[in-house]
Design a protein around this nucleic acid. Sequence first.
DNA 1: GGTTCGACTTGACCTCGGTCAATCCGGAAT
DNA 2: ATTCCGGATTGACCGAGGTCAAGTCGAACC
Lengths: 254, 254
Amino acid sequence: MDSGTNVLDLSQLRRSCSSCALSELCLPAGIGNDDLERLDTAVRDKRTLDRGGMLYRDGDPFEALYVVRSGSLKTFVQDDSGDVQILGFHLPGEIIGFDALASNRHVSQAEALERSSICELPYARLQQVTSEVPALHRQLMRVISREVIEEHRHLVMMGRQQAQEQLAIFLKSLADRYQRLQRDSTALTLSMSRYDIANYLGLVVETVSRLFSRLEEMGVLEVNRKSVRICRPDLLAELCRSSPVAASKQRDAG
Amino acid sequence: MDSGTNVLDLSQLRRSCSSCALSELCLPAGIGNDDLERLDTAVRDKRTLDRGGMLYRDGDPFEALYVVRSGSLKTFVQDDSGDVQILGFHLPGEIIGFDALASNRHVSQAEALERSSICELPYARLQQVTSEVPALHRQLMRVISREVIEEHRHLVMMGRQQAQEQLAIFLKSLADRYQRLQRDSTALTLSMSRYDIANYLGLVVETVSRLFSRLEEMGVLEVNRKSVRICRPDLLAELCRSSPVAASKQRDAG
DNA sequence: GGTTCGACTTGACCTCGGTCAATCCGGAAT
DNA sequence: ATTCCGGATTGACCGAGGTCAAGTCGAACC
């Protein structure tokens, strides 16, 4: 992604929601102009992270929610023995940090996959604003709900799909989000490693590697390290649906 | 569970949060008495479902959140081809229905696993009340956040654990929730079928069946159809932790 | 009390994806 | 330019768990 231009953004550090190109994809979506100004008062400022930089760690006190402005991050949980499970990859416009609402501590971690800039929404201030702007409150609930639904998808992918379908769904989901961002949805730049992808899908890296090769042989993709061209979006979509796996992993087992 | 007594509860249909034994486990947890009365005004009434009865279906308009008062439910998503993925099993005190906040339609389904009674929180009224009672608003956010975290656990279980550990974790989680409800946490009554358990864990029913047998041989459990006695809670806890599976499913794959 | 039906169990077998190991490749450092 | 190193790929092999098939068991119904 265009990490080169992000550096320049620093000059516009105090840039607000009202003028942000992401507003339609972000928290402000569907909020009136006057309320938008109010929301602006809740946005502290922008924070920049380099590749590998941590936005928050397990156990950190809950201070804010975060919106990805540019770049990308991964969120993950890590157990005592150091074992990691990646929960998601987050592109511009996406909001993270909700895990900390329950206990006022983060119970997951967020790490930049590339140079990224982030909007910080200090929760104390956000709460003030939401109490004054009911629409924003509802919008915030909607966003968390979307997070819940997104996790449902992740769960279905892991529980019901074959490895190949999983990778197809993963790529399709990235492509769809590229489209929302008005990027070319057939030219993906994978900011995460193969290890990350494997972990996210509950597979091992060798399997993911083989699957990329197989999809390339099938003519669905052209893969070159981190860049993936989707030659046949139609086929890719097809692969997401096919092979109901363990179809006997039954229907409604009432 | 004691489905016999639930019928009698019908006489107390208009029972409120203030007098409900579950209040400490439910939405009211940590809310002052005066605010509690306010919350009462948002609780419509109780609804009773028989085994197999649907609380809501995919596509249903969002009308309310629901609290399980007695009995148990499963929530699940179902794709076009009828394939099901169970998202969770829900015991008394637990709140469901958050999936509908995003789009004002449910995108999952909830079905009673046994005769169950449910408190309905019509969202329109709930919204009124939360706007008047900020504490309740925060509490509601906390509850959704807990849902997010619970799904993280489900994801880790599916992605990182062996089948045996998965079943151990599932049983342990049930036992822990029994304890919160002050039931005997060593004597579980599985209201869901083996098919449901398998589906929830991303396994097939034969595997689950074999695992129950194995855990019985190991002296951890005594299994008799739907009733499971946990003979060695210590061993069970041990099994939840062991065998980091595909340990090479790496640590932090920066 | 026998029949039926569906949930559950058990066994024999096979496959998908994990394991282990050898290599490739590109970027960074010397 | 050469070395180094970590990510990525590829191959050979293996095993946990899925598949298929044959029971068993208990509850419901006549």
